[in-house]
Design a binder for these strands. Structure first.
Lengths: 200, 200
DNA sequence: GTCTATATGCAGATAGAC
DNA sequence: GTCTATCTGCATATAGAC
């Protein structure tokens, strides 16, 4: 009942609303309602909407990115890392379906801040990049540069989530059960697709 | 100087602003400035912001989608159609870099209207879907369903555009020239990637 | 810490002169 | 058709009682 609990409730509520509506679309009133408190309380704990947003957004990233990078630090064979990456990322999104659109929207809003945030925490891709280059040199996979492989992977993983409202309607007769099945299938489909593209 | 010219100037200006900011982020004042006219004029030609937005948005789609579908109606070999699709889509986006984020953002805003729009104009995917199923049956490509292949393709094509602000900074030392080169490369990289994944 | 009530500012939309 | 000036409503933010 103390301050911690309320602040936490606010953050949780804000996460829901921001994920669904993005920074521009979200209303402070809506967040207050979701948290079951008054609008004024938001400004008591967070001076501005901007500040609240940053708290939520970077909280999510702090949780997500290190987990993804750590996958590549394991000692599995490379293609198994890909599989783990796809599964991990996809699982996280199945629990937060609005995440990708939210992230990419804000990538475009303030890229400098985001880039700084990652640099400050040592979140960069050199390690993974080196790993892929080595796999190519050793002839374990077909030639491809890291940026291309990265864009391919993220694109395939993320697309069914950001396109869902349209895809579900046009490709699955607007049946959400079927679409969820489709999403689940994608983990193995993407993994297979990549493995075949990179050559076994 | 007549009404046609002004209306056209408004539509062009609105296109620029909406593509960059989306429906929520765009300001009528900004559109008026871009068009070099007064804010009141926007409401003279278009009753509301919503109406202006729809005009722009569906104008773009009317131009884009039929071209993409028509590619699959040609009599090229299937994998060449894929190549043509990637090139065509990518070329369009290199001229309108903000398009994908804009489209996916609005897919989530009013999916029913968009779905109806496509149905009204007979813009659906059955033709392409049947084509792919036949290719699979004939053993020309490895087994894959249309929704999966579609999501893979669109995802890979679109990702470097919606992720550009971050990707360019973290993967290309924020060098726009290098990033443009990367974008250009992707046409052949994606085509190769897909061809290998589907098996030749 | 939590509330009600209010201030402030801005964006979409309209009125009306020219 | 085009403008200036203004209305209206809403969202963020604050003041102040409890």
């Amino acid at each position: 009942m103390g301050s911690d609990s309320t602040k936490e409730k606010i953050v949780q509520a804000a996460k829901q609303i921001f994920l669904r509506k993005g920074m521009d679309g979200a209303r402070m009133q809506e967040i207050a309602d979701e948290a079951g408190i008054n609008k004024a309380m938001l400004h008591y704990y967070f001076h501005s909407k901007d500040q609240l947003f940053d708290e939520v957004f970077y909280g999510i990233l702090s949780q997500l990115i290190p987990g993804l990078i750590s996958i590549f630090k394991s000692d599995k064979p490379f293609l198994d890392k890909i599989e783990a990456f796809v599964t991990e990322y996809d699982t996280y999104m199945s629990r937060n379906p609005f995440l990708p659109q939210f992230v990419f929207r804000e990538i475009n809003r303030d890229p400098d801040q985001l880039s700084r945030f990652m640099s400050d925490r040592g979140l960069n891709f050199e390690l993974v990049e080196g790993m892929i280059n080595r796999e190519v040199s050793n002839g374990n996979i077909r030639p491809i540069t890291f940026p291309h492989l990265f864009a391919n992977l993220i694109g395939m993983i993320v697309m069914p989530y950001i396109g869902r409202p349209l895809f579900q309607r046009k490709l699955f007769k607007n049946d959400p059960i079927e679409y969820d099945r489709f999403l689940l299938e994608r983990r193995s489909v993407i993994t297979q697709f990549v493995k075949q593209a990179l050559g076994a």
